[in-house]
Design a protein around this nucleic acid. Sequence first.
DNA 1: AAACATATGTAAGTGTCGCTTACTTTGTCA
DNA 2: TGACAAAGTAAGCGACACTTACATATGTTT
Lengths: 215, 215
Amino acid sequence: MTELSGIDEKEITEKSGYHHGDLRAQLLNAVRLLVEEKGAENFSIAEAARKAGVSSAAPYRHFKDKPQILKALVLETMGGMAARMQEAIAPYPVGSIERVNALGACYIRFAREHPGMFRLVFGISESHDGDEDLGGRGQQVFGIVIKAVADYLGVDAESEEATRRAYMLWTVVHGHSWLTIDGKAKMKGIEVDETQFLSDISDGLIVSLRNQDMT
Amino acid sequence: MTELSGIDEKEITEKSGYHHGDLRAQLLNAVRLLVEEKGAENFSIAEAARKAGVSSAAPYRHFKDKPQILKALVLETMGGMAARMQEAIAPYPVGSIERVNALGACYIRFAREHPGMFRLVFGISESHDGDEDLGGRGQQVFGIVIKAVADYLGVDAESEEATRRAYMLWTVVHGHSWLTIDGKAKMKGIEVDETQFLSDISDGLIVSLRNQDMT
DNA sequence: AAACATATGTAAGTGTCGCTTACTTTGTCA
DNA sequence: TGACAAAGTAAGCGACACTTACATATGTTT
């Protein structure tokens, strides 16, 4: 039932007795559904509780407050993203540019498929911007990108060059994800061919670098 | 016409009589301050009304609801961004790459100086994603970028190539802005030299294009 | 099994918020 | 001057985040 990918359908079961048994997980699930449905800023803990079949005070037995719930959900989601990204690069050989492009495609696909969660993860960080756990998960995700870039460039993953170039890619993909879910990407009819877009980007920012180094 | 303090014109002046006289503008002002101070999702209309020295029902004489207030503020802000960008490119000659880079720097500077408003403009669009006015303003801003890129490349501003390349730049700058205000940019110490970053980007995505065969 | 501690649920209440309704004050102009 | 519209207020509704006091289930100890 439980897959490796972060977001999958787990059913929300109403509690059977006085004690729920699995409320924490079910709450996170309910919140995720609501975030997807109504947006990251228009959901309520109360409604999530209702959805899980418990009173509106019950969530506070498992989470300190609303930001804590969101943080837990964000952590879960980022873990899922890392897993998805690992899956995405698996088919391609280490050191290939396809591996890099696959990461970008994966990131964008996530944003498109789960805009509410994407907004939650990257847009609401007000509440938890200095957080250690989240920072760690972020590092984990970004590390995957750095490694793919470093492998392609044939440099050490700790090198500044790899980090710099990986960050450039990240900004592109991150920005495109945002503009896409904001609907700003298709304003004038910027019909972006995503595969083309990604390879143009990596051509300009990564491939050209390797070719020039080798001359 | 009694002013209690010698504060300047842009400050929020308490109303002098029963009628405020300038409530709409003052409310927008108060909201902007609150958005900057407490974040785009943690402010209340009630507090803005308090700040303007007016009852919590008064705002609804000028705005239909909360999203409408935010929309008005976003419109105002986007207009301001367009103006800032025009100023930013003014010192550089038409067709220069510096003009392109200046736009990016300006965009990022705005995000850094007004993270709350940036989040409001680009993060909360749930409420007004299909909006015409906002779309128009967005076009206006993006149009400035397209023109600078087209001028540099020596192609028509209506050409698909100009739009495509301008969009690439936009994604980079937009993504970097987000990651910066999210604090994700300085996680591992990705100390980004912004000027260097921007010129690397335009080198890879724009300059290289002109230098090579341009079809 | 009885007794206790602890984990996890509920009910009721507080203060705030978004927004509405009914009423009041004020400026404008025929 | 008096009618009317514009722009304010007070009071209240339902929802929400969160707290407090209490109820019920579960596990451990004896």
